[in-house]
Amino acid sequence: MSGFSTILRRELTLSLRSQGDVMTVIAFFAIAAALFAFGVGPELNVQSRIASGVVWTTALLAALLSLERLFALDYEDGTLDQLMLSGTEPIAMVLAKTLAHWLTTGLALLIAAPVVALALQLPTQAYGALMMSLALGTPTLSLLGAVGAALILGAKRGGVLLSLLLLPLYIPILIFGAAAVEGATLGLSTSAPYAVLGGLLVAALTLCPWAAASALRHALE
């Protein structure tokens, strides 16, 4: 477990030193959401109607941004070789790096989401559901993303390919995340989408680190 926290600390240090990373994700999130507003027009009730879907979709796309580099930089400079040989279980290493990714993107999105939602006229009663669904859903995005990022190591085209692989797999999270927010807007119960999002998170937590670790082994072979 000490390997896990050592790697986590280093990952956080590195991403904080290249400050751009976190800011880029939040800026992308805000700009993409603004594009939707420009696309549908300034009518407040139209925006309010689509706010739940737009916030979730743009947050999901923003979470994709930095995934490509989750393992790619370490793969190119030889760090991944060293991490595999460091005596730390590869699964713990994957978990540490994924958690660092979530802390620097998922958590950042979570903090920025209410502001973006405010601009899109999301009704007041839906903010709790927005935060809750993002808190349950974005870790799953990072975990699935880790598998995708491990699979594309060494590929000729990185980012576009990763989006092509991951977006279909992200659909269930988007469906239930947006449904929770919309349910709360309409004053319905949100327990069903929460339960599914939680279930998906547990499933991803058990399967994805293992799948990503074995994909990394194959990538280094």
Binding site: L14, D77, D81, Q82, M84, L85, S86, G87, T88
Partner: peptide
Amino acid sequence: LCAHGARLGFAGHRDAVKSAQ
């Protein structure tokens, strides 16, 4: 493989040095 990795030190072509540190 994990235990094997722990008993070796490896220096390959790529130096695994992080520029930001």
